[in-house]
Design a protein around this nucleic acid. Structure first.
Length: 486
RNA sequence: GGUGCCUUGGCCGAGUGGUUAGGCAGAGGUCUGCAAAACCUCCUACGUUGGUUCGAUUCCGACAGGCACCUCCA
């Protein structure tokens, strides 16, 4: 099925087609590994995951998905330095080797990041590569040399800067983000004295080493520029190395449009002569209870925080997929609860589809239309809320026990395929829970059953209340009762 | 100051120039000794204000409110 995506570059929804054959090459801006990822980060990665799954399942493409890991920046340097309060014993021992500290520190948070996204149903085997910035330094240096050679960058006190004004003579700067150069930064404080830039618009490609910072050797035409890469250059170099230019889709959060992605476009074109991609896709932000998530407001949550509150990560996945990636998502605890119930309604339906003991007379005729409606919604800019609405309407109109055998089989095929995208359900028959019920609970249940037989309902209700207070739910059946853990 | 996005019923969240989104919660009902679960039914909104129109939540303008980016924050 034809996939349509909103392209930030053209601000319109466009039909998508891979540049080469049936392979989609996709690059996603990944995390900076200086801390545990928060749920706002998670939304960006879930969006990229959704996109690649829709491309595979509905677009029927092969997807080559690359997500970078930024392990060298101000924060990773700061927090891995000796005396850091963030250092913990699981990272190993700090030494006086700054590079060694940096790598130990970032490896720890990289590992925690991979654990977190795995819990959210992002499958590591779906990535074709997760490159770390520190492993592509030579490629970045090569790109910087090219840009200097093309006279779009200059060296100042050992750092290299991209000359925006020079570049504007050759190409547009402000493709993703409309920039009014007259009023640009008029109301903004500029930390100009931090670097020796010629113009406030210029951005850094390479930073000269400072005391206490790890660095890589770099000599440009006899000038010693030992130091480390700027933030934007890593993506430009790694995507070229791992995907080739131009590739098909670049994803990231809206906040990265400027300056990160804008600078990435300029750098790549100034150095390699090509823009990274023609398709830029950005996800909107997440708010918590209608407010920006921030530590000072006390509404800042990492995935680990939520799991400590006994929230199932798959409910977070489903809740986030219930909103369109292009609109602000309002995270609330009530919303997660609601999402969990909605998710289990579909899960129960899938369980029921496995139950062969009852059969009805609804034929499989309507399966084709639910597939078409749901997939069309997903194919049109990943419209998950609409797709889910179709699914709920379908299960409301077609109870599982009223489908005939063929319809049930086809419905099951549909949900199996759908779960290749959502990945929040189990495609299996309802597991028979081997519950270990404490004997005192069973005793109470037996006593209650007897009380019921004796029509002593007061006693029966007292016993039921005790069972509920002990954390179990008792349901009466014709023959007796069942006990479930709450 | 510049740039962009948003404002839908108790909550979340689609969409449309006139006709049902969907989910959660809530109400009533069937069932049950009563419950629980399940199933059935119901609850009809579109920030304010002008304009266009036979008719606007939907188009245009203004206003109000919220959010984001311009600070190596997804």
């Amino acid at each position: 099925m034809q996939i349509y995506l909103y392209n930030s570059l053209t601000k319109t929804i466009e039909p998508f087609k891979p540049l080469k054959g049936n392979i989609v090459r996709m690059y996603s801006c990944g995390p900076t590994v200086y801390n545990y990822a928060h749920i706002g980060n998670m939304r960006a990665f879930l969006f990229a995951d959704l996109l690649q799954r829709v491309l595979k399942t509905i677009g029927e493409f092969d997807v080559k998905w690359v997500m970078n890991i930024t392990n060298i920046d101000d924060k990773t340097i700061r927090d891995s330095a000796p005396g850091s309060s963030v250092w913990n014993s699981e990272m190993g021992n700090q030494t006086d080797n700054l590079m060694d500290n940096l790598l130990k520190f970032t490896r720890y948070f990289e590992k925690s990041f991979l654990e977190d996204i795995s819990k959210l149903g992002i499958r590591l085997e779906h990535f074709s590569a997760m490159p770390k910035a520190t492993e592509f330094i030579p490629q970045m240096q090569e790109l910087i040399r090219k840009i200097i050679k093309n006279e779009i960058a200059y060296i100042s006190e050992g750092s290299v800067y991209f000359n925006v004004n020079e570049w504007r003579k050759k190409d547009k700067y402000g493709k993703l983000y409309k920039i009014d150069f007259e009023n640009f930064r008029a109301g903004v404080r500029i930390d100009a004295d931090q670097y020796e830039r010629e113009d406030a618009n210029d951005f850094v490609l390479w930073k000269f080493k400072k005391p206490g910072e790890p660095y890589w050797e770099f000599e440009i035409d006899g000038v010693i520029c030992d130091g480390r890469p700027g933030w934007h250059i890593e993506c430009s170099a790694m995507e070229k190395e791992l995907l080739g230019l131009p590739f098909d889709i670049h994803t990231g959060g809206v906040d990265l449009k400027f300056p990160h992605h804008e600078d990435e476009i300029a750098q790549s074109k100034a150095g390699y002569g090509v823009e990274p991609t023609a398709f830029w896709c950005h996800n909107e932000f997440l708010e918590v209870e209608g407010q920006k998530m921030s530590k000072s407001l006390g509404n800042y949550f990492t995935l680990r925080d939520l799991m400590n509150r006994a929230i199932d990560p798959l409910d977070i996945r489903f809740a986030m997929l219930s909103a369109h990636y292009g609109s602000t998502y309002n995270f609330t605890f009530e919303g997660i609860k609601s999402a969990r119930k909605a998710r289990f309604r579909i899960q129960d339906y899938i369980y029921d589809l496995h139950d062969n003991s009852v059969t009805g007379n609804i034929s499989s005729d309507m399966i084709a239309s639910i597939i078409d409606e749901t997939y069309s919604a997903l194919a049109t800019d990943l419209h998950t809320p609409k797709a889910l609405a179709f699914v709920f309407t379908f299960i409301n109109d077609n109870p599982a026990n009223k489908l005939n055998d063929e319809a049930r089989r086809k419905a099951l095929e549909f949900f199996t395929d759908l779960n290749n995208i959502f990945d929040v359900w189990k495609i299996e028959s309802k597991p028979i829970e081997e519950l270990i019920i404490p004997s005192e609970i069973i005793d109470m249940a037996e006593q209650r059953l007897q009380a019921k037989k004796d029509r002593n309902y007061v006693e029966a209700d007292v016993l039921r209340q005790k069972i509920i207070e002990a954390g179990y739910t008792i349901k009466d059946t014709k023959e007796g009762y069942t006990i479930e853990q709450k």
